[in-house]
Design a protein around this nucleic acid. Structure first.
Lengths: 197, 197
DNA sequence: GTTTTTAGACTGACTGGTCAGTACAGAGAT
DNA sequence: ATCTCTGTACTGACCAGTCAGTCTAAAAAC
């Protein structure tokens, strides 16, 4: 299972993921060439196609990997917490994730709302999984009266998700000098105000 | 100045803008071909190059046109209003704009946070102009005590701008059936809570 | 323990197609 | 008379994907 071969291969795939995510975050999917990805990962072009069926499949697996990780962190963050605390934990988890995987976050922000792309269906599905965790928390809070009853659950959930992304990435791109902790504080403050009953 | 010739030409340019904005919103800049743009605009390919220096220049002029319009509407919206009312007016203006030019909004959301693209500098500049209007309003409100003193002006401004974009486009893409008025209400509610002193 | 074989991982030159941009002669509009 | 646009043909660069062949760790045979 974890013999030398498959470990080596997993290494290569990981390097390709890292190279791809950085390039696609900067330039977008279409503007990034497979040659670029191979070069940045330090492998031959053929290796990309040995490990992935196509450029699109590489990207889809990348999305699955990245969003899967985010969803898992969301799940871990809310586990066992009451609604208000869970909401704050979600914001912290999202920003922590963005700080750690900033290139992926940038990529997500740029490609998330595209239509008419081959991988759109995949992305839509994955987005749903991540947001479902948020939605469960909001729903529980609204039902128990811990959150304002007038909150529309799907709207509030996708707004929370998108807002974290856009504010954090905006900060990263346009005000990179300032520490991310400030964004976290600002966002938490806003969410707290909105969550007031 | 507005003779038949230049009006005709302006018409063609407008049709090219419309075609380009729709295609780029769906597929992104790189994935959109000049042939596609010409075809959708109902114009020969040569006409594109008669009216614009290059694909990139066409896109840059498109950005200038679109964001210029948005900035103008921001200016008109806040004119003469006190801070709190001006803030609400900005949110309304932004959503009104997004409703009218949804494809452009989608395009903006997808291309705004890219790095390493030729037109990045242009976009950065234009973004600054639009956000400056918001920042002036927020600054005035903070100075006069109408808005909470702990608000960081540049952060709050770019957050407000980005949040409107992301929430509205998210709605357009993922919940297109529901009326945009609901987003407006939800957003106004959130902004009002945040603006409470 | 040494030699042979195997198969998984990787290479990089090559191909077929796509696309931005050019060229230009003629047509329509003003 | 001039500006604007059409239609078609073309070029050269670039790029996704292929494939015949190389390298090497480790299994099999001796």
């Amino acid at each position: 299972m974890t013999d030398g071969r498959s470990r080596r291969r997993e290494d290569t795939r990981q390097r390709l993921f890292v190279a791809a995510v950085e390039l696609i975050a900067e330039q977008g999917f279409s503007a990034t060439t497979v040659d670029d990805i191979a070069a940045r990962a330090g492998v031959a072009k053929g290796t990309v196609y040995y490990n992935f069926e196509s450029k699109t499949v590489l990207f889809e697996e990348l999305l699955r990997h990245g969003i899967g990780l985010l969803t898992a962190e969301f799940r871990a963050a809310v586990a066992g917490l009451p609604p208000r605390a869970a909401l704050a934990a979600l914001v912290r988890a999202e920003l922590e994730y963005i700080r750690r995987y900033r290139a992926f976050a940038q990529l997500l922000l740029s490609e998330m709302w595209r239509t008419n792309r081959e991988w759109q269906q995949t992305l839509r599905l994955l987005r749903g999984e991540a947001i479902e965790v948020i939605a469960e928390t909001v729903r529980a809070g609204v039902d128990s009266g811990d959150l304002p009853a007038e909150l529309d659950v799907p709207t509030a959930s996708s707004a929370l998700f998108g807002v974290g992304l856009v504010v954090a990435v905006d900060w990263l791109v346009f005000q990179p000098d300032r520490p991310i902790e400030d964004v976290q504080e600002a966002l938490l403050g806003i969410v707290r105000r909105v969550a007031q009953t």
